[in-house]
């Protein structure tokens, strides 16, 4: 293990701690780069915010990121759990976004049909 890997590990740990300490269970990251916006990321984000408000879901932090290199799969939404697990949803539209809020954020069940990758981070 070299210095660079140690740094990465530290960053990773810090992120997880931040998520845990903020008391949030999930962090939703919407890809809001040029390609994401062109594909409809704004509507996806708005739908998710609306739906979360409607259902009184407060244990979720919403954030955005720039281009993530999945241009053909936009709009992309990534959900990070406090435990470190990540789920990426591709080609999300407002309808799917609503489903993600209901199934994943409220019931804790992944929407497998639109998930593209799941990374279980090593402890």
């Amino acid at each position: 293990m070299n210095l660079e890997q140690l740094k990465q590990l530290k960053n990773k740990a810090q992120k997880q701690i931040a998520l845990r300490e903020s008391g949030k269970k999930y962090r939703v990251v919407v890809s809001m780069g040029t390609s994401g916006i062109a594909a409809g990321a704004r509507e996806v984000m708005k739908t998710m915010l609306d739906e979360m408000e409607k259902r009184g879901i407060e244990s979720v932090e919403v954030a955005v990121t720039g281009e993530i290199g999945m241009v053909d799969a936009e709009p992309v939404v990534r959900i990070e759990e406090a435990g470190g697990e990540k789920t990426t949803y591709a080609k999300v539209n407002p309808e799917v976004a609503r489903k993600i809020v209901v199934e994943h954020l409220e019931k804790g069940k992944k929407v497998e049909s639109v998930a593209v990758g799941k990374v279980k981070e090593q402890e």
Binding site: M32, R42, K46, V64
Partner: peptide, 8 residues
């Protein structure tokens, strides 16, 4: 919606 997205 754009302003909302930027704020959020």
């Amino acid at each position: 919606s754009s302003i909302l997205a930027i704020c959020a």
